[in-house]
Amino acid sequence: MKVLVIQQKMIGDVLTSSILFEALRKKYPAARLDYLIHRHTAAVVEHNPFIDELILFDPIADQKPAAFFRFLKSIKKQKYDIVIDVYSKINTALITRFSDAKLRISYDKWYTRKAYTQTFKNKKKSETNAGLAIENRMQLLQAISPDFPVEIKPKIYLTSEEKEKAEQRLLADGIDLKEPLIMCGILGSSEAKTYPLPYMAQVLDFIVEKTGAQLLFNYIPKQVEAAGTLYDLCKPETQKQIFFDIFGTSLREFMAITSFCDALIGNEGGAVNMAKALDVPTFAIFSPQIKKQNWSIYENGTTNVSVHLADFSPTELDGLTVSEITKKAPELYKLLTPNLIFAKLETFLKSNSEIKNNL
C-alpha cells in the first residue's frame, strides 16, 4: 500500500499533520508513506522514523504552469493507493485528483470536494485535550479504517549530534544549565500575530522578577531590529538575563537549543508547537484572530497553558469575521494587557519544577 499525505502550509501545520504517519505506520508496518510539504518546512519532520520520503514542493518554482504540470505527472507516476490532503486548497485538490489514487481523502469544502472520494466536516468541539487541530486530522484516517486512535501527540526527532552541539553552544556562551532557561517567542509570524512589544517587555520583566531565569530570544537575523527594540524596552535587570546573541541559525538548531529550555513563553505559533513536540512546557499568547480551541494543543493547565483576549473579554470579538479581527489586531491586542496575563503566568511558572525552584 502506498500513501501520500499532503500538507502545504506553515511549520506548525506540517508538524501537527505528521501524527498521521505514526498512526498509519503502527497499523500498516509495510506501507509506503510519503509526505508532500513545502521545502522550507522540512526541518520539523527530518529523521521522523514513520515517514519514508519527503516530497518537497517549491511554492515559487513548482507553481509555474509548466513546472506544476511536470510535478502532477511525477505524482501520478508514483501510483499511490491513498492520498490524504490535509490542506484542501485548489492547488492540493488538483494534485490529489491527478494522482488517480482510488481513495482520496480531505475536509469537506464546496470548492474542492469533487477532487476527493471521501470528505469530512471539521469537528466543532474537541473530545480530548489534544485540541481540534489534532482530532480533525486524525478523523481523516476514518476513511481508511474505523479503529485509529482519536489523538496522537506530534514529536520532533533530534539526533544526539544536534543536541550535543546545542549544549556546547549554550555552555560556551555562558548559559548555566543548572539554572532556569526560558525560550521567548518574542515575535509572531506576522505583525497581526505579534503581541505588542511594550507588553511583551512587561511579560519578560515579570518572568525575571519572579524567577531570575536566563532568557533566550527566538528570532531570525532579519528580525534583529525588532528583537533589539524589545530588549531596549525591558528593565535593566531583565536585560542582564537576556542572552541576545544566542539564537538558532537554522530551524534544526533552534529546536536543539529549545530542547534544553525549561519552558517556551511567548506568541502562539510554530515555535510553540515545536516546543510541545519536544516536551518543553509552553505558555502561549494567542493573537485575537486565531481560534484558541483549534490550536490549544494538549493544553492541560500546567505544562501547556495559553491566553487569548476571549478568555478575559468573551464578547469583544462577537460578530467579527477573521478578516475584520485581523485588521483590528493592533487595537484588540491593546485590550489584552499584561496585568490580565500575570496571574495565569505565575501559576504556570510555579507548576513547572525547573522554574519554580527559583520562585
Score class of each variant (00 low, 15 high):
Met1Asn: 03
Lys2Gly: 08
Gln8Thr: 10
Ile19Gly: 13
Leu20Trp: 14
Phe21Ile: 07
Leu24Trp: 03
Pro29Ile: 03
Ala31Asp: 12
Ala43Pro: 08
Ala43Gln: 12
Val44Tyr: 04
Asn48Pro: 14
Phe50Lys: 07
Asp52Glu: 10
Glu53Ala: 06
Glu53Trp: 02
Leu54Arg: 15
Pro59Ala: 05
Pro59Asp: 09
Gln63Val: 09
Ala66Thr: 04
Phe68Met: 02
Ile75Val: 09
Lys79Arg: 15
Ile84Phe: 02
Asn91Ser: 12
Ala93Gln: 08
Leu94Lys: 04
Asp100Cys: 07
Ser106Cys: 02
Lys109Glu: 08
Lys109Thr: 05
Trp110Gly: 06
Thr117Ser: 12
Phe120Glu: 06
Asn122Gln: 14
Lys123Asn: 06
Asn129Thr: 15
Ala130Arg: 15
Leu132Tyr: 08
Glu135His: 08
Arg137Met: 09
Met138Asn: 05
Gln139Trp: 04
Leu141His: 10
Val150Glu: 12
Ile152Phe: 06
Lys153His: 15
Leu158Thr: 03
Ser160Leu: 09
Lys163Asn: 03
Glu164Met: 11
Lys165Thr: 08
Asp173Ile: 03
Ile175Val: 14
Leu177Arg: 01
Glu179Ala: 11
Ile182His: 01
Gly188His: 00
Ser190His: 00
Ser190Val: 00
Thr194Gly: 07
Tyr195Val: 10
Leu197Ile: 14
Gln202Leu: 13
Val208Trp: 05
Leu215Pro: 01
Pro236Phe: 05
Gln239Val: 15
Lys240Trp: 03
Asp245Met: 01
Ile246Ala: 00
Thr249Ser: 13
Phe254Leu: 06
Cys261Leu: 04
Asp262Lys: 03
Ile265Leu: 07
Glu268Asp: 12
Gly269Pro: 01
Val272Lys: 07
Val272Met: 12
Ala275Lys: 04
Ala275Leu: 06
Ala277Trp: 13
Pro281His: 11
Thr282Ala: 03
Lys292Arg: 14
Lys292Asn: 10
Tyr298Asp: 12
Val305Ile: 05
Leu317Glu: 02
Asp318Ala: 12
Pro330Asp: 10
Leu335Trp: 01
Phe348Ser: 05
Ser351His: 11
Asn352Phe: 01
